[in-house]
Design a protein around this nucleic acid. Structure first.
Lengths: 140, 140
DNA sequence: GTAACTGCAAAATATTTGCATCCTT
DNA sequence: AAGGATGCAAATATTTTGCAGTTAC
C-alpha cells in the first residue's frame, strides 16, 4: 500500500512528505469519506491543522480526492477513481451518508441518472447525496 | 405578499416579528436560494447576525425552508413547498447552482429519479445538486 | 402579565495568511 | 543549493451561548 501511495503522489508531481503519505493512508484505510475534523482527530493529531487544510486543498486541486457536499457545514472528502486526475472530476457516482453510524460511502456502482433540465440549463457536474441507513446498520 | 408571509408564520405557531417577516420576504423575493451571508448583506444588515442564525434554524425546524447541501462550506436555504411543513421534508426536486452568476435554483419540476441502491441500503432522503450554467447566463 | 424574541457581549470554533525553518529533490 | 512543505503565531471569519431588555399575544 505504501507503494501505491507514493505512486499517487509522484504521478501528481507532489513531493513525498510524511503528512501527505499519512493523510493519503488514512483515506485508503477509511471505508468512507473523511472530513477535516476526522483527519485531525483520528490520526492521533500528528500534524498541524494548517497542514491538513493545505494538504486537502492540494489533493483536491490535483484530483486525488473529491469533495462531497453536505448540509451540515462539514465538507467530506473521498478518494477519486483513476479517471479524474488533473482536477477534471468525473465523479458520476452516488454518495450515501448513514444517519445511524455517520459513515459516508461512495457507491461507485450506482450511476447518476441523466436528468431532464429545463431549457437553457447546461449541467457540468451532478452531485447526488442520499441519506438513510446503511447495510451495516440495517443488518444490526 | 405581506399576508402570505404572516399566514405562513401563523400556520407554524410563530409570533410575527419584524425580522421574521423581513427574512421571509427576502426568500419570497429571491429567485433562488440564500445563504446566511446573503441575508446578512443583501438585507441592508438591519438585524443582528445572531438573529439570522436563530431565525434560519427556526424556519428549518418548522419546515418553512430547507437546506441545500454544497461543497463550499456555505449552506444555502430555500423556501419549502407546502407539503413539507412540520419538519418532514419531501424535497424531491433538483437543485441547480450556476457557476457563472452564483444563483441557486430549485428546479421544482425536475424530479429526483429512483436509484438502485446496493442491498441493505435504505434511502430516507435524496439530494441532487447540479452545477453548470443557467439559462440566463447561457443566453447572455 | 407572560412567554417568546431580539440584541449585545463574549466565548468557542473554524479558516486563512505570513513568515521562518526544515525537508525533498 | 533551491524550491517547496511544514509549523507556529496571529489575523479573520464563523457559529454558539448567556443574559438582560423588549415585543407579541
Amino acid at each position: 500500500m505504501q507503494q501505491t501511495i507514493i505512486d499517487t503522489l509522484k504521478r501528481n508531481q507532489l513531493s513525498i512528505t510524511d503528512s501527505r503519505k499519512k493523510i493519503l493512508e488514512l483515506f485508503a484505510k477509511a471505508n468512507g469519506a473523511l472530513a477535516h475534523f476526522d483527519i485531525e482527530h483520528q490520526s492521533g493529531a500528528e500534524f498541524d491543522r494548517v497542514t491538513i487544510y493545505r494538504t486537502l486543498q492540494t489533493f483536491v486541486e490535483k484530483g486525488i480526492i473529491h469533495t462531497i457536499p453536505s448540509a451540515d457545514n462539514s465538507i467530506r472528502y473521498a478518494l477519486c477513481k483513476e479517471d479524474c486526475a488533473g482536477g477534471h472530476h468525473h465523479d458520476d457516482h452516488v454518495h450515501f451518508m448513514c444517519d445511524s453510524c455517520g459513515t459516508t460511502y461512495c457507491l461507485d456502482h450506482v450511476n447518476v441518472p441523466q436528468l431532464d433540465l429545463p431549457k437553457g440549463f447546461r449541467a457540468v457536474q451532478t452531485d447526488v447525496v442520499v441519506s438513510g441507513v446503511c447495510s451495516k446498520c440495517a443488518g444490526a
